[in-house]
Nucleic acid binder design. Structure first.
Lengths: 206, 206
DNA sequence: CAATAAACATGACATATATCATGTTTGTGG
DNA sequence: CCACAAACATGATATATGTCATGTTTATTG
């Protein structure tokens, strides 16, 4: 069974798959961070989700028929991915109700997250959404640091902008303000959350 | 087995459940349309999804632990809902791999939809999103009419606004323009899509 | 059918965010 | 370490959309 899971490594400039590619595998993030991206013909990008170790992807319907990927998957730095042919995955689920239940649970959580994000995009201002993003990433990829919480994932202002539906310039401006207000510090290589409470307050000041 | 599914009817002013209520049942829409809504403390609303006959809801993670509903479910007019205690639903899935696979497929599709919506909110203008909405509803709830496609679901400009993250006034203005441009006609009680192609062109003019 | 509320319409104005432009700082590969 | 590119910064201006206000039309209900 488990030998059907193979490990692959990717670097920062690779694609795990591209939007429109046929779906062949079910994936699990083993190490590193993967971003799920959709783009428009004119090159605008929208990052739907940052996948961390333990996250599943392509565990869904697109893997069930001959469909193609609705978005692309790109590593943020070096990552290691476990994958399984979709046929094996499919059979494994049929034989293993526990696994199927886990996938249902996982997809349900992903759907809730996605709907929460929809609500944020629809109702919150840009600075609130950016604060939310930072709070979320602090919880998911942060490590303690003498001055706060350091984010392990390398993320530029442009990356942030794509995650919350604003332009790079707006992300830079808001981050400059957060910096001035001592909420955060540092740049892509060393992002530091200095005042988590302050960010949380901003995030939920809807 | 099937006798565990019970039918309940609701009217336009009822709630099927409210945000925060404990999750007790798995649901299926039998007749009518149900909207899934999230709201802020200040009364702003965001409609996440219109559920039509055949759609499942609460088939997800919130139903798996002692969690509560992340949003509320309200009928758009008269609806009929089938439901099953979550314990029975859970057991049914464990015994029935086909059902579990169907749920995984359904959730995957819902997740894709949600992510498509995220992309629209992040990258498209209000008029494009409204055009998208109308095209989508024409496909899902439209019936042929001498002058185009009539939407069976009764939907005010405010409802539309909540579905695409704009204000009621903006929805009214855009609909007025669509009316002037002969793309649509009519009001909540009798919404008519007069030029589906035109709307599609606008929707994808990203 | 009258009374009342809901839905639609439209103007004037405010504002958050996008766009474009230009410059500085920081990182990186040869 | 130098050269080059990426990332960050910030101003000026444009614009889509929100907000508030007021009026009309269309439903609904007693």
């Amino acid at each position: 069974m488990l030998q059907e899971l193979t490990e692959t490594r990717y670097g920062k400039h690779d694609y795990i798959f591209r939007e429109g590619d046929p779906t062949e595998y079910f994936h699990i993030v083993k190490e590193g961070t993967v971003k799920c991206v959709k783009s428009t013909p004119e090159g605008k990008e929208c990052t739907l989700k940052m996948l961390m170790p333990g996250d599943l992807f392509c565990c869904d319907a697109a893997a069930f028929d001959g469909a193609s990927h609705p978005g692309s998957a790109q590593p943020m730095g070096d990552v290691s991915i476990l994958r399984m042919k979709k046929k094996s995955y499919f059979e494994m689920l049929r034989r293993n109700p526990d696994a199927a239940m886990e996938v249902i649970k996982y997809l349900g959580n992903r759907l809730n997250e996605a709907q929460e994000k929809t609500k944020d995009l629809a109702l919150d201002r840009a600075d609130q959404r950016l604060a939310s993003l930072l709070v979320d990433l602090a919880a998911r990829s942060g490590i303690p640091d003498p001055n706060g919480i350091r984010l392990t994932v390398r993320m530029t202002r442009e990356d942030m902008a794509n995650m919350i539906g604003i332009t790079t310039e707006t992300a830079i401006r808001i981050m400059s303000r957060f910096k001035r207000d001592r909420l955060v510090s540092g740049t892509a290589n060393r992002l530091l959350i200095r005042d988590l409470k302050g960010l949380k307050a901003l995030a939920s000041a809807s």
